[in-house]
Amino acid sequence: MTWQLTFKVARYKPGEPPRTDTFQIELDPERTILDGVEKIWAEQDRTLTFRHACHHASCGSCAIMANDVEVLPCIVEVNQVTRNGGTIEVGPLHNFPVVSDLVVDMGTFFERMQQVGMPIIGPTDPLDNQPKDDFHAYENCIECGICLSACPVVATDPTYLGPAALAAAYRQYHNSDDSEEKQRIMNLVDRENGIWRCHVAYECTAACPSNVDPAGKIMGLRRQATVNRVRKLFGLKPA
């Protein structure tokens, strides 16, 4: 069984005004929004550009807006967002420079992730099971940028480090045994455009497709920064 669907796709090419294109496609309702976008590219419009790689929510490449909500379109079946004969609106993430159509520029995002330096997969012992705690060897964050798109502060302050980098900083701080590394992370985040810039809207945590809870991690870093200051008053080393 297939459904008749209308895709309204936000289009942009450098030097041209943005526009919306409408496409009619037939799709199995259990296929995903990304399948629909790829089908439009394959069968109707080769100028359509979009980021994608893994199609199972692990690479983070394909994040977009769908019906005004941040999603990984590779894991949202069309029947979750519309009905037979219905319409799906897709566009690029908010708060990122748009390169072309659904493609945004991830450069600054990855620069900040690299500054924090959290390894996405930690060293593993090949023959041991990993303990199931907050610090998996395989980190949950897939660097999709959804939390930045959802964040009201990122929308107004491009210098803000943003939820993904701050969540990574929390993990890096607590994963590290090295006091210099801890200090480096604290210096990076304990400033105006770091942990103190967050308005505690928790939009990032609500939008995250990988349960990273960036807002909770930012609050954790605030507590840590405060504890470190109090300890300093008493001449103690940071915890």
Partner: peptide, 14 residues
């Protein structure tokens, strides 16, 4: 023609 790893490699079994 597409994004890095948007063909066979991106969607492989890992």
């Amino acid at each position: 023609r597409g994004e890095i790893a948007s063909g066979t490699t991106g969607r492989n079994h890992c």
